[in-house]
């Protein structure tokens, strides 16, 4: 199925969880935060949150800024 991650289309297996997505994107252990369809999904719920087709995911991290 296809989902949108940071504005780009991404193929991911059916029934994948947010943890699976993090693994697929090689972001395991990185300091990130995830928003799924405009809702923050706490880290503790990444393993139990299943993705569905056309989900909009935002993955952010900290960068330099003033």
């Amino acid at each position: 199925m296809q989902i949108q991650v940071n504005g780009e289309a991404l193929e991911i297996s059916e029934d994948a969880t947010l943890n699976d997505l993090i693994e697929q994107l090689q972001l395991v252990g990185k300091r990130i935060a995830i928003e799924l369809n405009l809702e923050i999904i706490p880290r503790s719920e990444h393993a139990s949150t299943r993705l569905k087709s056309d989900d909009q995911v935002e993955i952010v991290h900290a960068i330099g800024g003033g």
Partner: peptide, 20 residues
């Protein structure tokens, strides 16, 4: 110390140093 929040680059430089 201030910092900004931005989209993570996907598939690029997985070992890029993190601000934190």
């Amino acid at each position: 110390v201030t910092m900004a929040v931005r989209r993570t680059n996907l598939g690029q430089n997985p070992d890029e140093p993190n601000l934190l």
